[in-house]
Each structure stands twice: as C-alpha cells, then as structure tokens.
Amino acid sequence: MRHFKSQLLLLLPAAAVYLFFLVLPLWTVIAESFRTFTPGRIGAVAGAPLTVKNYTEFAGPVYATYFGQTYVLAFFASVIAIIIAFPVAYYIAKNASASVRKIWISALVGLMFLSALVRIYAIELTFGSVGILAPFMSFVGVNMNGTAYINIIIIVGLLHYAIPISILIMIGAILNLNPRLTEAAQSLGASAIESHLSVTIPLCIKGIVSAFLVSMTFGVSAFAIPWILGRGRVQFISNIIYSRFSEVSNYPSGAAISIIMLVLSLLMIFIISRIATFFDRT
C-alpha cells in the first residue's frame, strides 16, 4: 500500500503537467466548438448560445474532400518514406561500421534541424513552375500548373521530414533484431528475400508502424508545406484551422474542425495499432 502511495506521488507532477497543458486547453477548445459565432467579432462572445452547427457545416462533401486530400497525401508520403527509409535504416543498423553509423546518424539528426522553410523553398526553387527544372519539365510535357503535379510536389515536401525521421526510428527496431532468426530461416531453406519478408520485416513491424505513425502525424498536421508548395490551391485541414482562428477569428468553427481532426487521427492510430498487433501475433 505504501509502495502504491509513493508511486502515486511520483506520478503527480506528470499528471499535473498533462492536466494543465493538455486536458485544460483541450477542454477550452471543446467548449468553444459548441458556441455560436457572431460575424465581425473575435471568437464567441461571452454567453453565446450553444449550437452544433459548427460541426454540421463540415458534414458536406466539400469538406470531406479537404479531409480526404489531407489524409491521402500524408498517407502516400508516409508509405513512400517507409519504403525508402527501411533499406537505408537496415544498411545503417546492420552493414555500416560503427564510425559510418555515427556519421549517418549525425547527418540524419542534423537534417532534422534544418529549417522547414529552407527545405520548402529549396523544393519550390527546384520543382516550382519557374524552378531550375522547369525547362526540362516543360520539355518532357509535364503540366506544372496541374493539380496532380502540385500534389506530387507536396508529397515531396512531406518526404523531406518523413524520410529522416523514419530512418532514425527504424534503426532502433532493426538493431534489436536477433540476426540468428534470419540465419535460422535461411539454414532451413528460405532464400534471402523470403527470410527478409517472412522474418525481418514482421519482427520490425513495431518500428515500421511507429515510423509510419510519426510520418502520418507530421503529414496531416503540415501547414507551411501545402501553404507554399500547394500555391494556395491545395489546402490541408491545418490551413483551414489557421484561417478560422487567425484570419476570420471564427474560433468556434476552428475549434470544431480541430476536434474532428483529433478524433479522426485517434481513430487512425487505433486502427493502425490493431493492424500492427495482428501482424505481431501472426
């Protein structure tokens, strides 16, 4: 009992931090999301009547498109990031010497410190409609003014962050892998590819899922990437939230869409975790 009490006491500071910095602000957002907005004012006025209109206005197909666009682009960026990052992480963890591994990890961590705006403008100056590759793109017949091209550039922008973070996350998972299991599979007749697909990847599934979730989280919450690389023609949910809070001061609507996004993200994490657990068991 005494041991339990001391544990509880030790938990108190962390619980207090969560309560004050996460639960309380979140509660404020939830409460604001049910208030009626008066045009021309900033946020809901004191004592504004309660309403669910802030939620129902996002029920239309147009906003489903915005949610779809945000999650689909973030999903593709995360999948591509995992596909690129896994072999690199495997090489760093298994094949690189200790000194080379250090260099790789330092470079990847260094890359994380590079300003997001620098990366975004680097992409814009390279792949933008007047970027250095524009003459080549025009020559090969790429429509740089098209929505498909802009979406691809946004995915490239998301990959700039997703790839290094995925590599760093997966290095840990691969390092913990027991090499004897792969060797055992091969000694029982499995080819290198078969042992990789049936032993290595399933055993790294938790690391892969973690990297995927971190990339997805970054992708769906991206703000500057769609803002600049999307040329204002592609809007992520984060851009709409910013517009509601900062440009038109409609806090209730901004709060409602934030809560919808939070619920969707929690749902996504739950589903992916269940899938990962399923693979882990099998």
Binding site: P39, G40, Y66, T147, Q235, S243, S249, N250
Partner: peptide, 20 residues
C-alpha cells in the same frame, strides 16, 4: 465588409477552392 470575412472565406472553400 468586416462582418463578411467568415462567410466569404467559407464560400471560397466550398465553391472556388475545389475548382482550382
């Protein structure tokens, strides 16, 4: 005009942005 920002922005999101 100062009272129309919200309505105009929503209309842009709903009617114009999808056409871009």
């Amino acid at each position: 005009i100062s009272e129309q920002s919200d309505a105009w922005m929503k209309r842009w999101e709903q009617e114009i942005q999808p056409l871009l």
